[in-house]
Structure formats: structure tokens, C-alpha cells
Design a protein around this nucleic acid. Structure first.
Lengths: 418, 418
DNA sequence: CATACTTTGATCGGTTACCGTACAAAGGGC
DNA sequence: GCCCTTTGTACGGTAACCGATCAAAGTATG
């Protein structure tokens, strides 16, 4: 509640320092529709045509929207088509993983224009990580696709909970060496753009919601199964962070009280059954029963197990299906509580796709009481390993579409208007 | 997303049919502050004094706010104190339980002015239930405290998921005899007021958030343990319903895969370990080991177990503590996923209070990985058995404070202004 | 106790951002 | 060729905010 009564039910005092309150809404509508005429804007937004004309007149010089000839007549004068210029600006999305850094340069439609990635001990080396990030960002901005295009902002995905009220503060538990400080302000200052930070799983969820689905979905869960297990949530169209920014910890949900002991001190957490180490251990334990397996006799990693499963190896399939079943139990619990309409699976484990889909679906069907919960769609990430970095860029785009003053001014906007 | 781009980040077109957009915000502020001067409103709301004066001039004749003399001077002219008239109107809150109906008549501050309750086979007898509801509502409105006070609206809590988009539709699974129709429109029409419907656990959560806590809490979970187990959630200050209105089903979360078989067809759901039947069965199974127990030799109900536990009976304590442990496991999972700042326990089981608090807290501490998750406060319902009905009334109040045109006009508003 | 300064609340003119109406341009259909 | 539509623009009107000003009624200060 606090001081937000002005926003109660969308009411808001007209902001005096920024021009025309509805301009942002119109700009966003044009973004959503890609190409739209003034008359259609008026129709869709419930504004009068005169107002829309005026607003568009103010928006055009920003260079984000251009008039692109005329559209087909529907029995009268042919409309002037306004088109959002997806490539007017670029955005940097940074992913900090546990052991790597990746940077994506995107346009205003989530398309990746440049991609840089490097292994790095992020956990233990904060200053080096900051240097690597700066370097990869510079490399991306030097790409030909970025030439002459101004930067909107930098989004950063961190492998740590992010408190909405203190975005620059990191959790001591997950990243103790960082001493609670992200320390990337200089990155934004260097380019003169704002910096946005959020949790990696949340940004994966954001990316999947914005770019991975055809339909508009307001309730989405993104589950990343790799070394660890994380999940991010979109609720009512917004990233869900919870009271202290730690929502979505699915990794330590109890699956089996008689199970293995977990690093968190308990037994039978999901990570003890589905994490990378768990899969390797399980396969090693079963290898005696499958002497013909491709994994028999030698060291192997999760990656090897996944490859073997995709090749049809019985041992790998056994391990993978068991894990999928456990994952299904956890996802069912998540669905019962959060009731998403789509669950997106990402991370290395999602490579297996059809191999794990059936055991997953069956377990979920069994464990969800209400039909409409079970009706949620289970699908795999369309963005793959880039989803988190793209999500970081999307965070910036989302902010700019909500407050168009964040968009940089574009000089050469005269040539665009035909 | 849909058509809501006008509400994107609080932007909204000025609504032409209703006067003065910010009037609602000012009215709500006065409600929040109880007593406040015009100057303080301007300060708190960031409006100019002239605007506030004008708005208050329009609000006063509604009868919801009255000038109550002057307050203390702070070095200048003494302010005129505006006071929200909590008793200007009344609200009906209806609770439909599995086997009973209860109706609360409240004022505009959640105080219960009249209370009617009756056992009734709600599940199997829709028409009879509707009659009982109408009867109890009439009884409440006939109470002296309601004399001359206009009704704002009727809120109804149903023991069934409620789809936000179709509030009048009931789930076939939970209440098959109702054939998906609530059929209470006539109740609202009879009094000429709007009808609001939501899930009972959600409304319990709403009531606890609005009236049960001293501080403002935006993330709250309400867990009701009685015959069954339900949970309702407040997220970012709003009732959380999920994509299809089924969020918060905590009862069938998996606790023990080797546990008892559940009506949902699985093993080890929370209800098989903590529900009323589960407690009775567990006590019956242990009664041989406790020949001196008050429960030995004879039939008993959950209520008896609770009473015995409160009296210090070892058998009952054993049963109750085990159940609290299981409940703690489920709550820990919920906290990891939803990250609330307060968890409120309601229902009959919450009577045990201190008896279950320790095993509950311990289990939660063990099962929550992140400190800030575990830092959530666990407390017991302050509203007790009335919480759901009060929540139903609160739903109406919340709607009216968001759209003051829902408040009825009050005739005798002249006498109030001193 | 008179004076200066504060604080509150009301009044009034000004501004902004919207609307509706009117109109010109440019099309389709009979 | 005529009439009717549709699009985009121009212009006056209006609702809802602000700032400045002022009267009323208090406190602080000499």
C-alpha cells in the first residue's frame, strides 16, 4: 500500500515534466502491432483520431516509428502505415552464469545481432568478471549490426536472488566473494545508459514470455535444469520476485524424505534427484546392470548421459526417465501452487525433449487435482542457451516501452520518413 | 497484455463519465488515514492544496467523509479534520462452507456488526443453500446496527476455484450439484447492489491482510487447516488467482511417496497426513500405545484430539506434532516458491497455536534454503472462524474504495457536517 | 500585547491534454 | 459520375490539474 494510492486501479496524476501521458501507450501499441495506421490506433486505444494524430506527430521525430507508404483501402481513403523501427536502437543483455559470462546484443524485437560468450570463474573472481563483461559488451557493440545505432540500456542477469527494492545488492549466500555488491554502475555510465538487474531465472522466464510463445501468456513458469535447478515466474504479466526477491526456489522442494542427503542439509530435495551430479551418480550406480551401455567403463558427464540418451542408450534412458519423473513431481507441485498457463523447460536437460516429455506429462497428470491446472502447456525453450541473456535485454526493452523517455534520441530520422 | 496497454505503468485515459479521476484516490487516502486535514492530503498525495480543496468539496456531500472540528495547530491556522465515516454504510459478507453458511454484516472498517451462521448441506442442496443465504442476509440487515445504513454490496466466498474472467461459474469437480452456476444474482438485485464472488481461502487471505496485521504486507499466504486444507495468497497486494483461478492448492502437495493413498489417487499428499480424517486415523492407530490417553476407548473427532492436545494428553500431542511437522514441510515448499512475508494459519488446527508452532518453525527452518525466505513471519489468524466471511465483505470494500461510484448515496448527510 | 511569521483553506486565472465537430483528400461501388 | 466511406488534420471546447493570491486563524517574539 504505502504511497501507491495514486496508482490504485491505474489512476495517476498527469506527470508534468514528461509530455503527453498517453504517448507512451501509443508507442507501445505501435510496437505491439508492428504496422498500424493512425485510425486503427484510435480504434484500438479508444482515443479520438484527432488526439492520435497529435500524439503521432510528436512521436515521429523520435525516430522509433516511421511512415511506410499507404496501406490497402477499406472503402475510403488509404491509410498511412506507421511502422515500428525495430532496428532503430540496440540493447545489451548480459548473463552471469556460475562459470561463464555471455552477452547478447539485440534490436528492439529481441533479435540477437551479436553474441559473445566466455568461460570464467564468476563465483570466485568478481573484478575479473567485471572486466570480461565490459570486454564482451564492447565486442558486441563493435559488431557491424550495431553500427550507428544508439544503445538503450544494459540488462544484467545475475545467478542470485535480486531484491526489487535493492537491485544492486547480491545475496551473500550464493555469491559470497562478491560481498553483496554487483559493481557494474560504470558499465552503464561508460555508455551513458541506465542499467537494469534481475535474477537469471526470472529473465529466462521473461524472454520466453516475450519471444518464445505465439500467444500472449500472463502466467508462465520457466524451469532451468542444468547444474542446478532454478525457476522464474511471470505472474499477471510481470516478473514475480516475492517479498524479498527469492521466489521460485524449486530446487529444494522435498520429493523423497528417504532420499539422498542434500547440500542444504536435508534429504530428497529435487536437486539430489535431478541435478547434474545426481544424474551422474545415478548412472554410475546403475552402470553395473548395463554392461553394454555406452557409458560403461570410464568417466562421463551429464552431457555424455544426455548424448547417450538421445542415441537410445538404455542406461541413459533409464536415468533420464527417472529424473523426468521426479522433475514432474516438483513441477506438479509448482503448478498446483502457482497455476501457470505455460511451463517452459530450459537448460541442458531440455535438450532431451521428447525423451522426457512423456514421463513428465504422466507424472504431472497424476499429481494435479484440478483439470484446469493440468491443462497448462508444457513446452521447451525456443531460445535455448541464449534465453537468459535475451531476457536481460528484454528487461531494458520492457522498461523503455513503459517510459519512452528512456529511448535515446536518434539524429538521422529525416531519411526514414518517405 | 490484450487491451490493457492503457494501464501500462499506470497510464490511463481520463474516464469521461465519472467525475474527477483523483477523487477516488483522495477518498481512499482519507480511509487509510482515518483522520486527516486537507493540507496533509495535498502533502501525502502530491497534489496542490487547491485541487484537494476542490475534490474534498465534491466528496463531502457523499456522506462518507465528515468535517470533525479542528485539529492542533502547528504554528498557523488550525486544520479542519476530515474523518472517514466508518459506519456510513454496511456490507454483507457471505461464507459458503462445505457444510455451513455464515453471513457477516460489517461496517467500512471490517468490524462485524452482525453475525449469522447455520449448518447446511451446501454441497448437495443448491436451492436450499440459496434460501438460507438470503434468509441470513435479511436477518443481518435487520440488526439494529444496520438501521438506516445503506448497503454497499454483497461479497460471497465459495469453496471452489473462481475464474477471474467468469466469477459466477463454479467448478464442477468441487461442487457438482451446483451445475457450474452460483445463481445468487437475485440476492444483489433484491437490494439493488453489486455482487462479488471469490474463493474462500483467497478471501481469508484478504481479510487477514486488511485487518489481521498491524503493518502493511503485500505478500501473504493464508493456510486454512480444517476438514481439508486450503490456501489463499496475496501477491503484490492483490488476490492471486493464477491463470485459471486455481492457484494455491496446497492440500495435494507430495510429502511422502510411501505414504497413505489419497482420494486424488496418489500417495502421501498433505491431506492424507494433516486433514481431519488423517488425524483421527493416526490417533486411532496409536491409541494402543497410549492406554491412559483421554482418547482411549471410544469414538472421537478432530475436535476431541485438539481438545486433548490442549489439555496435555500425550497421544494427542504426538499426533498433533507429527501433523505440524508435515504441515511445516508443505509450508516450507510454499515459502520457497512464493516467498511471502507473512504466513497466517487459520482453521480449527490453528487453535493449537503454541503446541504446533515449535515443530512447524523447526521444519520450516530446516527446509528453507535462503534466510530471507525463512524470515517470513508465521502467525495465527486473528479473525478466527469469521475470517472468510469478513474477507467476502472486504472484497466489496476494496472494490468500492477503488471505484467510489459503487458507494450508495447517503441522504441524511447534512447533520454530519458540524 | 502588538507585530511578524506560519499554516490552512478558498478563489481565480492559466495550462494541458483530451474530446467532438468540421473539413479536405482520396478511395470504392452502383 | 454520383454518393458514401474512410483517413488524417484543424479548431474550438472542456475537464482537471496547477500556481498565485488572499483571508482567517493560529504561534513566536520583542
Amino acid at each position: 500500500m504505502n504511497n501507491d494510492f495514486l496508482n490504485w486501479k491505474g489512476l495517476r496524476r498527469t506527470d508534468p515534466d514528461r509530455p503527453r501521458p498517453l504517448a507512451d501507450a501509443v508507442l507501445r501499441l505501435i510496437w505491439e502491432e508492428h504496422r498500424i495506421s493512425r485510425a486503427d490506433i484510435a480504434l484500438r486505444a479508444g482515443l479520438s483520431r484527432s488526439t492520435v494524430s497529435e500524439i503521432v506527430g510528436e512521436i515521429l521525430p523520435l525516430g522509433l516509428v516511421a511512415e511506410m507508404g499507404e496501406g490497402p483501402s477499406s472503402g475510403g481513403r488509404r491509410p498511412i502505415v506507421l511502422e515500428f523501427q525495430d532496428d532503430a536502437c540496440v540493447i545489451l543483455g548480459v548473463e552471469m552464469g556460475a562459470a561463464h559470462v555471455a552477452v547478447a546484443l539485440t534490436n528492439l524485437r529481441g533479435a540477437v545481432l551479436a553474441w559473445e560468450s566466455r568461460e570464467h570463474p564468476v563465483r570466485s573472481d568478481p573484478p575479473g568478471t567485471r572486466r570480461v563483461i565490459a570486454e564482451l559488451c564492447a565486442k558486441c557493440l563493435a559488431a557491424p549490426a550495431a553500427a550507428g545505432r544508439p544503445l538503450v540500456g544494459v540488462g544484467v542477469a545475475v545467478p542470485s536472488p535480486v531484491d526489487p527494492s535493492q537491485p544492486d545488492r547480491l545475496s551473500t549466500i550464493v555469491l559470497p566473494a562478491w560481498e553483496e555488491k554487483l559493481g557494474l554502475e560504470s558499465l552503464g555510465e561508460q555508455y551513458g545508459v541506465p542499467l537494469f538487474v534481475d535474477n537469471d531465472a526470472n529473465l529466462g522466464a521473461l524472454a520466453e514470455q516475450w519471444w518464445g510463445l505465439e500467444e500472449d501468456v500472463d502466467h508462465l513458469a520457466y524451469i532451468k535444469v542444468a547444474t542446478g535447478i532454478g525457476s522464474g515466474h511471470i505472474i499477471d504479466g510481470e516478473i514475480y520476485r516475492g517479498a524479498t526477491g527469492v521466489a521460485g526456489e524449486i530446487g529444494h522442494i522435498a520429493i523423497d524424505p528417504q532420499g539422498e542427503r542434500c547440500i542444504c542439509g536435508l534429504r530428497g530435495c529435487l536437486v539430489t534427484l535431478v541435478g547434474a551430479q545426481a544424474l551422474v551418480a545415478r548412472a554410475a550406480a546403475l552402470v553395473a546392470d548395463y554392461p553394454d551401455s555406452a557409458l560403461a567403463g570410464g568417466e562421463f558427464t551429464v552431457h555424455d548421459i544426455e548424448d547417450a540418451a538421445l542415441a537410445g542408450d538404455p542406461l541413459a534412458l533409464q536415468v533420464v526417465c527417472e529424473a523426468a519423473g521426479h522433475l514432474g513431481t516438483a513441477i506438479a507441485g509448482l503448478m498446483n501452487l502457482m497455476n501457470p498457463s505455460v511451463v517452459v523447460l530450459g537448460g541442458g536437460f531440455a535438450r532431451l525433449r521428447d525423451l522426457i516429455l512423456d514421463p513428465l506429462r504422466e507424472r504431472i497428470r497424476n499429481r494435479t487435482l484440478v483439470d484446469s491446472v493440468a491443462a497448462a502447456e508444457i513446452r521447451f525453450s525456443e531460445l535455448g542457451p541464449q534465453s537468459v541473456a535475451i531476457g536481460a535485454a528484454t528487461l531494458v526493452l520492457k522498461a523503455a516501452l513503459g517510459d519512452s523517455s528512456l529511448f535515446p534520441l536518434i539524429e538521422s530520422s529525416a531519411e526514414a520518413s518517405q
